[in-house]
């Protein structure tokens, strides 16, 4: 078994929402990601999955907790060292329309990362590297001089992937990389991500709300609910034997493209509307209920339901 590349311990990210209240977007979550592994993270809007992804990369300063990358606590790094660390840790964003600068050409977008980290070398080397990256994500060399608006959604996402790969990262947080794309294009992008992982030995934190796609790409899946992690297991195991009622409810809501299955499906209703992760400042939440307990090998669930 390979070693843990990412170790997240007691990670909390609270936002002050005024009137003495705090939003506990990420509340005491723990997980590890092995080298070369894909950890899927699912949950509804507002469950804190995007905040968790961003905090792991230190795009947000955490409220408490630690994230170790290869044994180094990244929250303790001074700015200079953190910048160097960012070469290893990259992100692919959800919205390929909003995450690319419309005034930059593709080569500017990809090259910017190289420039910032001083990896560009001579002009010819820079060009060569950009072309190499374009090849890697299945775009043509003559795409380099074009602007983002000239591309379709799927192609833009490929540009976003090339940008994040420019600095040779080891670990990539993919924040809903396919949810803005058409079904026929989603499979293209997912296959590309898998192929790059095999070729470059990447480690992914794959955040999404499309549970069937998460199952497809992930080795293990974590379920988030209102800022807490409620269940974590190998993906096959999680989908076959969900324990937490929230996981069950999520799984039963997946539409299946098969009328036979749909006709016999029982929906498990948990709630009409989500609860709220907003608490009065200083209010104690019952953390012990949400401690993850291992119920079978590698299958963790919040203590209340263990």
């Amino acid at each position: 078994m390979s070693k843990n590349l990412i170790e997240v311990e007691g990670l909390k990210k609270y936002f002050n929402v005024g009137k003495g209240k705090v939003l506990k977007a990420v509340d005491n979550i723990n997980f590890t990601i092995r080298e070369g592994e894909t950890l899927g993270m699912v949950g509804e809007s507002g469950c804190g999955k995007t905040t968790a992804g961003r905090t792991v990369l230190r795009l947000y300063e955490p409220t408490a907790g630690s994230v170790k990358y290869n044994g180094t606590d990244i929250y303790k790094l001074p700015p200079g060292k953190m910048k160097a660390m960012r070469r290893d840790m990259q992100m692919i964003f959800q919205d390929p329309y909003a995450s690319l600068n419309p005034r930059f050409t593709v080569s500017d977008i990809i090259g910017e990362a190289l420039d910032i980290h001083g990896m560009a070398g001579s002009r010819a080397e820079r060009k060569k590297r950009i072309e190499e990256l374009l090849d890697m994500v299945g775009l043509n060399h003559d795409h380099a001089t074009r602007y983002p608006h000239e591309f379709s959604g799927g192609q833009r996402q490929r540009i976003g992937i090339a940008r994040s790969l420019a600095v040779n990262p080891k670990f990539i947080v993919c924040d809903e990389p396919i949810s803005a794309l058409d079904v026929s294009i989603q499979a293209q992008v997912v296959n590309l991500l898998k192929e790059l992982q095999d070729r470059l030995g990447l480690t992914y934190l794959f955040i999404a709300h499309d549970l069937s796609m998460v199952k497809h790409i992930s080795d293990r899946v974590a379920v988030m609910y209102l800022g807490k992690m409620v269940e974590l297991a190998e993906s096959e195991e999680l989908y076959a034997n969900p324990i937490h009622p929230y996981t069950k409810s999520l799984l039963s809501a997946i539409p299946v493209p098969d009328p036979e299955v749909e006709a016999n499906k029982k929906r498990i209703h948990l709630h009409d509307e989500l609860g709220s992760p907003i608490y009065a400042a200083g209010e104690k939440t019952n953390d012990s209920d949400f401690e993850l307990v291992e119920v079978s090998k590698g299958h963790f669930v919040a203590k209340q339901y263990a």
Binding site: S152, G154, Q155, V183, S184, I185, Q186, A187, Q188, V190, N191, K194, L211, S212, M213, K215, H216, S235, E236, Y239, L251, I254, V256, P257, D258
Partner: peptide, 21 residues
Amino acid sequence: LRSMPRLDQKKGEPLIPIIGT
């Protein structure tokens, strides 16, 4: 239909995308 992942699909089976645009 082939490009959609299905819950009953076996692990490691690649998705078959529709190529092109």
